[in-house]
Amino acid sequence: MSFQAYIDNIKAKTGKTPADFKKLAEKKGFIVKGELNPKTKATEVTNWLKEEFELGHGHAMAIYATFKGKTS
């Protein structure tokens, strides 16, 4: 599955874009001043996405990758 397919599936399931998730992550302190907080571990982000949005591990990692700057 391509990266874009992961993003498209996430939007279909949750109704949220990577930008929406980034805003929510800022409220949780995972994103600070538009950048991934260096103290934040991938596991913290993926666990949050799995628990709150019922994403699978691969889909949660795709959102985490967007937080690190991946766009395609």
Score class of each variant (00 low, 15 high):
residue 1 M to I: 11
residue 1 M to T: 14
residue 2 S to T: 15
residue 2 S to W: 03
residue 3 F to G: 13
residue 3 F to D: 12
residue 3 F to Y: 14
residue 4 Q to F: 05
residue 4 Q to Y: 08
residue 4 Q to S: 10
residue 4 Q to K: 12
residue 5 A to E: 14
residue 5 A to P: 12
residue 8 D to L: 08
residue 8 D to R: 03
residue 8 D to F: 04
residue 8 D to E: 15
residue 9 N to K: 03
residue 10 I to C: 02
residue 11 K to T: 07
residue 11 K to W: 04
residue 12 A to Y: 07
residue 13 K to T: 09
residue 14 T to C: 06
residue 16 K to A: 04
residue 17 T to W: 01
residue 18 P to G: 15
residue 18 P to W: 00
residue 19 A to Q: 13
residue 19 A to N: 11
residue 20 D to H: 05
residue 20 D to Q: 08
residue 22 K to G: 14
residue 22 K to F: 07
residue 24 L to K: 09
residue 24 L to W: 05
residue 24 L to M: 13
residue 25 A to Y: 10
residue 25 A to P: 14
residue 25 A to Q: 06
residue 26 E to P: 08
residue 26 E to Q: 08
residue 27 K to R: 11
residue 28 K to G: 10
residue 29 G to P: 12
residue 30 F to G: 13
residue 30 F to S: 09
residue 31 I to R: 01
residue 32 V to H: 13
residue 32 V to G: 13
residue 33 K to Y: 05
residue 33 K to L: 03
residue 34 G to N: 11
residue 34 G to T: 15
residue 34 G to M: 09
residue 34 G to Q: 14
residue 35 E to M: 10
residue 35 E to D: 14
residue 35 E to A: 11
residue 36 L to H: 09
residue 37 N to F: 01
residue 37 N to R: 06
residue 38 P to R: 13
residue 39 K to M: 07
residue 40 T to G: 14
residue 40 T to N: 11
residue 41 K to C: 10
residue 42 A to N: 13
residue 43 T to S: 12
residue 45 V to D: 04
residue 45 V to A: 10
residue 46 T to I: 02
residue 47 N to P: 01
residue 50 K to L: 00
residue 50 K to H: 03
residue 50 K to A: 02
residue 51 E to H: 12
residue 52 E to D: 10
residue 53 F to P: 06
residue 54 E to G: 07
residue 55 L to Q: 03
residue 56 G to L: 01
residue 57 H to P: 00
residue 59 H to N: 05
residue 59 H to D: 01
residue 59 H to E: 09
residue 59 H to S: 03
residue 60 A to H: 02
residue 60 A to V: 00
residue 61 M to A: 10
residue 61 M to Y: 10
residue 62 A to M: 04
residue 63 I to A: 11
residue 63 I to T: 02
residue 64 Y to N: 09
residue 64 Y to G: 09
residue 64 Y to T: 13
residue 65 A to V: 08
residue 65 A to G: 13
residue 66 T to I: 03
residue 67 F to Y: 07
residue 67 F to P: 09
residue 68 K to M: 05
residue 69 G to C: 05
residue 69 G to W: 06
residue 70 K to G: 09
residue 70 K to A: 13
residue 70 K to T: 14
residue 71 T to S: 04
residue 71 T to Y: 01
residue 71 T to P: 01
